[in-house]
Design a protein around this nucleic acid. Structure first.
Lengths: 342, 342
DNA sequence: AAAATAACCGAAAACCTTTTCGGGTATGCT
DNA sequence: AGCATACCCGAAAAGGTTTTCGGTTATTTT
């Protein structure tokens, strides 16, 4: 009992086993199984039968060796633990899985050494392409080693503008959020952002500010930066209410911040959304649907971003290159925390 | 410009290229690069030089074809979107990456057809083993197709007791939680659980009940089941306080439930932890550290579970089989929501 | 009936690496 | 000096598949 099940003591069937059983040559067997023409229907049936009988599964290694392309890609994340890699990964896996491509997953854990090691391994496995998923939207250095296959950067763009990068549209997200609040009839809009060190925070602020400006509105108070946390949201909301009690909408740098803001609003006796509308970014389900009322948020469409990156990589493998930074549209997911004023 | 970088128009260097450049045979080149003995130090240096110069990277496909083992494993998740797959995945990836093993990631998205398709692809790629990650701790059917390589089930055990499964110890978690609350001096402990349809919920309840019994304590009220959500936690806590205002600790089926419970406690003027201690399961960071006070929770050690599964698969590949269900210990992560009574 | 054509099948090369085994050279020993 | 012994190196096979091209048989045309 070398193997748990189905072992039968024999090694896995090979094409020549199938050919032998079907009474044909390996060449014919190959053609029959791959749907090539120039093989009699009856012969094909015999081969298919034999293959099924031996539960034949073609050896992709041999095929890849011959074809010079493995039908695999590498998915290199900088930091799986972060919240943003997973949906991107899902999207990419989805897009590839639909084709005949299998995905190698590698997590560098934010370590450059480990990253190089993984890249080396992937090159050795002859992946046909590579998606590099960053851990924040700040630009990252391109892969150091001369990699011989196409690379697409996702979430974090490459510092080299000649590389192809797919990133979320944080500026557009900020703009979209403010436009939604204005559409709800809000005019005294404050912005409690996240960590200033993240370009995601600054970009969202830029978009929001621009949208306010376009609408001829003044922001209520200054944009305040802090951390991506509920605690910061609670604290910042306290300060905001002290200084600007007239506020009728708070745009928050993330859903976490928004949760904190809602807590403080409730404690100060402000009702959401009648009194103050609240809105977040990221559409992190556990936070948005757990909130009371549920939290309107801007979804960054990360799964779609992953799919797009995968498709772009497909194109690049087929020699249809593209360069530069491509941004993904995002979308407002409406929930109870924002509602029209009447 | 066929390729983004480093292409030089030439195909990737092969071992015979290296050999030619070094002025030796491919056999010698191979031995030199793989540290085999019986090759002169000076010759080896020449080969290494040549390899570096051509940035040679051995073709793992060819190597795998020859060796009869690919040095890859499949990681088959039922549902990536769930919260529990990711840490397991990280642990497994970590354990494998440390070796020379690369990981194929496949997500079946809860679909049996897709699962079979992925298994077929993995078999075709000649993975040396397979880890199947379930989406809940309820047992799942074993892989239908006769897979020729070792399989380890993680999180969700296989229905076949002959398979090897690694699962979290939910019963132990429930026990541990109650013991912690008792150690904090609590004696009037209520339990608001999650979705009764999940064995995770029932097992935790079983452990908690047993621990109460061992301590000679009666539970406060009946265990109440609902959903894994903050909303349920808020509602259930309201009912609990109405019926049993004397409660001094609430054990919650998950961190989400716990957040809801804490909300209601605060609204009813109960302080945590002085008045009532609160505790959750899963140690979902964004929820536990965002709570006020921060939430004590039982960590199910999922990353370690993933690592363990990977090591078990290693052993199985080396023909050191193991069978049955192995449970992982979990651990209480202490935070502000539980504290000793004085 | 002979020839031309179409349809089908098989031998062999190619992909790249590792390993085995035999041959060759220098060194040490008698 | 002659022989045995280490020590190195190279030729060749193996691993499983796909593709090309030449060959064989059956079918149609004249």
């Amino acid at each position: 009992m070398a193997r748990p099940s189905g072992s039968r003591g024999a090694r896995t069937a090979t094409l020549s086993d199938v050919a032998k059983l079907a009474g044909v040559s390996v060449a014919t067997a190959s053609k029959a199984l791959n749907g090539r023409n120039h093989v009699h229907a009856q012969t094909r049936a015999r081969v298919l039968d034999a293959a099924a009988q031996l539960s034949f599964s073609p050896n992709s290694l041999a095929r890849g060796l011959l074809a010079g392309r493995s039908g695999t890609v590498g998915l290199l994340t900088s930091d799986l633990v972060g919240r943003f890699s997973l949906p991107i990964l899902m999207g990419a896996e989805d897009a590839f899985g639909a084709g005949q491509v299998s995905v190698f997953l590698c997590d560098a854990r934010g370590d450059a050494i480990r990253e190089r090691h993984h890249v080396q391994a992937l090159v050795s496995r002859r992946v046909d392409g590579l998606i590099v998923v960053g851990s924040s939207t700040d630009p990252r250095p391109p892969l150091a080693d001369a990699v011989d296959v196409p690379v697409v950067y996702a979430y974090a763009p490459s510092e080299d503008p000649e590389d192809l990068s797919i990133v979320p549209d944080n500026v557009g997200a900020g703009r979209m959020a403010v436009e939604h609040l204005i559409a709800c009839g809000r005019t005294r809009i404050a912005h409690i952002s996240g960590d200033r060190d993240y370009s995601a925070a600054r970009d969202r602020v830029a978009g929001a500010t621009a949208a306010l400006d376009d609408a001829g509105l003044e922001p209520v108070g200054q944009v305040s930066y802090g951390t991506w946390s509920e605690g910061w949201g609670r604290a910042a909301a306290g300060i905001l209410l002290d200084r600007h009690p007239e506020v009728d909408a708070v745009l928050c740098g993330s859903d976490q911040v928004a949760r904190g803001v809602m807590d403080t609003l409730r404690e100060r006796g402000r009702t959401v959304p009648d009194d103050v509308a609240v809105m977040g970014f990221d559409n992190w389900e556990v936070l948005t649907t757990g909130a009371r009322p549920q939290l309107t948020s801007v979804d960054m469409n990360l799964e779609e971003l992953g799919r797009t990156a995968a498709r772009a990589l497909f194109d690049a493998i087929d020699d249809e290159h593209d360069r530069g930074v491509r941004t993904m549209r995002c979308r407002v997911v409406l929930r109870g925390s924002t509602a029209p004023l009447n």
